[in-house]
Design a protein around this nucleic acid. Structure first.
Lengths: 81, 81
DNA sequence: TTCTTATGTAAAACATGTTTTACATTTGGG
DNA sequence: CCCAAATGTAAAACATGTTTTACATAAGAA
């Protein structure tokens, strides 16, 4: 998943710490999100979208990561519950 | 976070297992999401939205849960890193 | 150069999301 | 009633997201 958090933050001249405070998460979380180390939870994604007055889709874009199909080879034919 | 997954699934006459297969997650995950036991990851939310050809915002709605402010009393005034 | 702010990183602990296995309950059709 | 499919639930294990503490580095201002 790609995101435009850094771009949107810089447009507003906010530091990572500023943004973290507004979102009420740690600065490390903002840093990790900007650097693509992991994706935010859905609730945090909503907070981010609201803060920037954009839709989630305008900020986050599936990029061939987890939104793409998993590799399922060899995992079928035995799927009892 | 509220969601309309069950409604959208029933509109299409799919079982939870059908939907799980389409999303490539377990049936228990679909059940848990419908029953509001937890929110999906952002990537899974995207998969769900795409499957139903809707935006994430049309399916998921913050409902006063984690999207609302945390209780921050007494947590400020000492925020060194 | 020194001080300060901003940013990158790391490890541990903890919280949340997901799978697997397994079983119970409900529902509708025969 | 009986049977099958659908749904609800639970515990353990594992994966991912988040916080806390702590430190390193870069860059700019004084």
């Amino acid at each position: 998943m790609k995101n435009r958090i850094q771009e949107l933050r810089r447009d507003r001249d906010w530091s990572q710490a500023d943004l973290a405070a507004l979102l009420k998460v740690s600065r490390q979380t903002v840093n990790a999100l900007e650097r693509g180390r992991y994706d935010p939870s859905l609730p945090l994604a909503f907070s981010i979208a609201r803060l920037f007055s954009l839709s989630i889709e305008e900020i986050f874009q599936p990029d061939g990561g987890k939104t793409r199909d998993k590799d399922l080879r060899g995992q079928f034919g035995n799927c009892r519950d």
